[in-house]
Design a protein around this nucleic acid. Structure first.
Length: 565
RNA sequence: GGGCUCGUGGCUUAGCUUGGAUAUAGCGCCGGGCUUCUAACCCGGAUGUCGAGGGUUCGAAUCCCUCCGGGCCCGCCA
């Protein structure tokens, strides 16, 4: 709804600009604490027309014409600014729209297929707290893009040809696999032991090299061993992801591109370029003219492929089946991904949009699966859930254990997801246990609680026989009511911004603000006991609207919207 | 050393792409509010040289330059 309001303001303003005898393509509209939309066109046009901003604004203002049934109530001059306000018609229609569109409220009608790759952690151990920053950003973005109308397919790229998986395969033959542990954790144990042994006893290193070579050659026996190792680890990883409400549509093994010959194909394409040269037997691509000083090696001197080469053909393959590619990658991929994009551009292929997120480190330093220095996602969720249970136990002493466990589960997943997504991806963070298990701060539980409150009112209304099939939205006049309706209307703009700029944290902020608006309404405006009685139906309708949009926002964040907690 | 990136109250953080009206919010701190629809809530208060310096501009947290500090990368690893 907000976008319609904005469209209307734009056309009203641009007509006024034209009528005043000016010309501009920038109406300088922005949301502001002073208005629902504010324009600073005066400033923008002052240099061009050599008049004061105020003088220009006044001229434009005098030419503003607003129709009676418009979404725009009025325009006001405030110094050199022109402020626009939402009309009663707009507010009423917003309420009706939410009730009509329900779970689809806020959806946009963008078209096109997007393949979004996220997580793609090496299957050599469990997901740790750095990996799940990738997962949560990727999954939330996928949900936002779906709501924006796109056909989104999520993919997990399994790096099965790297040395670390060969180390796991070697490790499984030389070390005990602890089957009492969750499978990804048991794989990590083997991987850590194997790495330690490879460092201590260098003579084993050629054994790993041999395994890698056999796998690249496609030897059936070794392929079976890789498949077994990876499937084992992935089973654990998928379990952790599912616990966080994250599911991938496809899992793509990088070896498939070697097997089909697509890697050779793209290597030949690159090799045919003038910018390629053989250096000590390895094939290097010069990218200096693309602003990248480091040349990229696409083929080893023994003729085998490298990660980037395979990634090149993976992207080429993705390109053939979608309109747009988005990759979520850690900060360590900055250089390699810009090289990848540059080569794809040179070859005339589509480039992926890359969302880079900065590292999550521990107070003592960075994490490493290989060294066994990490906090796993499972451990994090377990601890947060334990803390959540204690809070639930204290707040709801009369409820049965099953209920408390259920609440602790969705509260903790919500808290973990929200704490990750609220921070801009480009910010490096240091993990803090105290922060992670803190339920006092305004996070997911705050939003979930607002939703549960709304549900509770509706439930009570039903029991008391209060209906809102027929209601008059014109009686929603309290400041908290108007602020709440405006907040509801803005949901689609948030989806629009977040999907265009690939900034999922915008949605996290919005959800919190919406819960905040609802809580203020809840505190100051009685619903079921409202007088006169006609107010009850209208307010109840507004509660239902809030419930719907809170649920939509939470769903888009991948967080459960509970009916009670 | 080079490249990229981040630096906003005690702590965490929004805003920066597209410069504009008193810089966003949370935690913590101080004070207040449960016989009223779930107090995981609400209200009020204190706290800021937007890392430092320079520049562009009528106007800079936002753009440009220099410097300082943190992170990431710079391998025929992935």
């Amino acid at each position: 709804m907000f976008l319609k309001f904005k469209d209307e303001v734009s056309s009203i303003l641009s007509r006024a600009v034209k009528k005043a005898g000016f010309d501009t393509d920038d109406l300088a509209l922005s949301e502001s604490p002073h208005a629902d939309l504010a324009s600073s066109v005066g400033f923008k046009m002052a240099p061009k027309y050599k008049k004061s901003p105020k003088e220009i604004s006044e001229k434009i203002y005098k030419n503003i014409a607003i129709q009676a049934d418009s979404y725009v109530a009025r325009a006001e001059m405030a110094g050199p600014y022109i402020n626009f306000f939402m009309s009663r018609t707009f507010l009423n229609e917003t309420v009706l729209r939410v009730l009509l569109d329900r779970e689809n409220f806020g959806n946009l009608d963008n078209k096109g297929k997007i393949i979004l790759e996220h997580t793609s952690a090496n299957p050599d151990g469990p997901l740790h707290i750095g990996h799940i920053r990738n997962s949560v950003i990727g999954d939330t973005l996928a949900r936002i893009l779906k709501r924006a109308g796109y056909d989104v397919e999520t993919q997990y790229y399994i790096n099965d040809m790297g040395r670390q998986i060969a180390v796991v395969v070697w490790g499984l033959e030389n070390f005990q696999f602890d089957s009492t542990k969750k499978k990804d954790h048991a794989i990590a144990e083997v991987y850590i032991n194997a790495n330690k042994s490879l460092v201590d006893e260098k003579e084993h290193s050629p054994e790993v090299d041999a395994i890698m070579k056999k796998y690249e050659a496609g030897e059936p026996e070794i392929e079976g061993k890789f498949k077994n190792a990876i499937d084992t680890c992935m089973e654990g990883i998928k379990e952790s992801l599912a616990r966080m409400n994250i599911h991938h549509d496809k899992f793509i093994w990088e070896s498939q591109f070697v097997r089909t010959g697509e890697v050779t194909e793209i290597m030949d394409q690159v090799k045919a370029l003038d910018r390629c040269e053989l250096k000590d037997g390895a094939m290097m691509v010069d990218l200096k003219d693309m602003g990248i000083q480091k040349s990229l090696v696409i083929q080893r001197s023994d003729g085998t492929s490298l990660y980037t080469t395979r990634d090149l053909s993976y992207h080429n393959w993705k390109d053939s089946q979608c309109d747009r590619m988005i990759d979520i990658l850690g900060a360590d991929h900055k250089l390699i991904s810009s090289q990848l994009k540059a080569v794809l551009r040179i070859l005339g292929h589509k480039e992926p949009h890359i969302v880079i997120f900065e590292f999550v480190s521990l107070p003592e330093g960075s994490m490493s699966t290989r060294r066994g220095v990490f906090i796993s996602a499972d451990e994090l969720i377990d601890e947060v859930e334990k803390a959540a249970f204690e809070v639930v136990d204290k707040k709801l002493p009369d409820k049965d254990v099953e209920f408390k466990k259920k609440v602790a589960a969705f509260v903790s997943i919500g808290a973990v997801r929200y704490d990750i997504i609220r921070i801009s991806p480009e910010k490096a963070t240091v993990f803090d246990w105290k922060e992670a298990v803190d339920f006092e701060k305004q996070g997911a539980p705050f939003i979930q609680y607002a939703h549960a409150r709304a549900c509770s009112i509706i439930k009570n209304a039903k029991e008391e026989g209060i209906l809102f099939e027929n209601f008059d939205p014109n009686v929603l006049l309290e400041v908290q009511e108007i602020a709440l309706i405006k907040k509801l209307s803005v949901f689609e703009r948030v989806i629009d911004d977040a999907s265009r700029e690939l900034k999922p944290n915008l949605l996290a902020i919005y959800a919190r603000e919406l819960a905040d608006s609802f809580n203020q309404f809840y505190r100051f405006v009685p619903v079921l006991s409202a007088e006169p009685v006609e107010f009850r139906a209208a307010r109840l309708a507004l509660v239902d609207c809030s419930r719907i949009v809170l649920a939509n926002a939470l769903d888009t964040l991948g967080i459960i919207a509970p009916e009670s907690m």
